[in-house]
Nucleic acid binder design. Structure first.
Lengths: 168, 168
DNA sequence: CTTAAATGGGACCAATTTGGTACTGTTTGA
DNA sequence: TCAAACAGTACCAAATTGGTCCCATTTAAG
């Protein structure tokens, strides 16, 4: 069903907390408690994110994890890639063609590749900071944060739209 | 790794063949031979696509499957939905919020929902007819078929980009 | 110097999902 | 009547996923 796995989902939730205090240093157990998730799971996720360069880690007592970059400079695409590897809908794309057993079908991979690019950019276009923003009463926050993606979609749908001029 | 499963990939390959002769009626075994895939697998896929309303089936001798609509009116999104159910990156989206165990995280689902929409539209924007089109010498076919998606991406990226001229 | 708190890196396991097969029934044209 | 073809479903092996556990290493604090 084209979905990210649960750990990646947890990862965005955890990063959402961290994005609220970008300078702070968080321990795995502390984050686990705040999210109501099992400690070992959170720990595993944080290690993976650190390996992917999204988090900086400090070992030892009083150690923990902190964002390696600004919260709005870490995209969902990066989170997914850190947790699950390259974003690729089909083996053809990731394997570079070798993974595809039949030539005729490989001709199709160009299109898969395009679709893949579209998905990648949609994911690249939302930061963890935007993901963590709570719902405002007038929902304006959400309107703004999703605008970029929505506008791109409006074009895809063949409708007229305005270019964005801020945040990004 | 955010990917469609193999059967769905096969489905697009099979529909690619059918899109070349939109009026023809194909048997499961015939299609299996043309693609070099196991007969039962192809049969299973075709049944599923028929159940999803993408194919019309004719039982009995001389029966088979034919496209239920024009090849350019069947999108990749529909193929994926027929094969794998709703397109949803997270359980939150598909379950309508009930599937999400913690409230704070649910606030994030609005954004997942937007990302999901973006992906859905990218998939909705490419038809099986476009997927099946072979590479022309001047690659014009590819240019045309990916245009909508690429334009949306160009905007999303906020920069002008050159069209790619091959499929690397 | 010792200890406790913390990350780093795996190994490991149960449960689910996926990929594929097999079988039985139903329809239908020749 | 028969064979070709779809319909449905049960089934199984392999891979993936979700989660736990363990141990080594680092480091601040007493």
């Amino acid at each position: 069903m084209i979905r990210i796995n649960r750990e990646t989902d947890y990862a965005t939730a955890i990063l959402g907390i961290m994005a609220e205090e970008p300078e702070a240093c968080f321990s795995a157990t502390g984050l686990a408690e705040r999210r109501g998730l099992p400690g070992p799971v959170v720990s595993k996720i944080l290690k993976q994110l650190a390996r992917g360069g999204l988090l900086h880690s400090q070992r030892g007592a009083k150690g923990g994890y902190s964002l390696a970059r600004d919260a709005d400079a870490i995209s969902i695409a990066e989170v997914i890639m850190a947790m699950e590897g390259p974003i690729a809908l089909t083996d053809c794309i990731e394997g570079g063609g070798d993974a595809c057993q039949f030539h005729a079908h490989c001709a199709l991979s160009s299109n898969w590749s395009r679709i893949n690019d579209a998905i990648y950019r949609a994911l690249q276009d939302v930061s963890i900071k935007e993901m963590s923003a709570p719902l405002a009463d007038d929902h304006q926050g959400l309107r703004d944060m999703g605008r970029h993606v929505r506008e791109s979609l409006d074009v895809a749908g063949g409708r007229v739209m305005a270019f964005r001029s801020d945040h990004g």
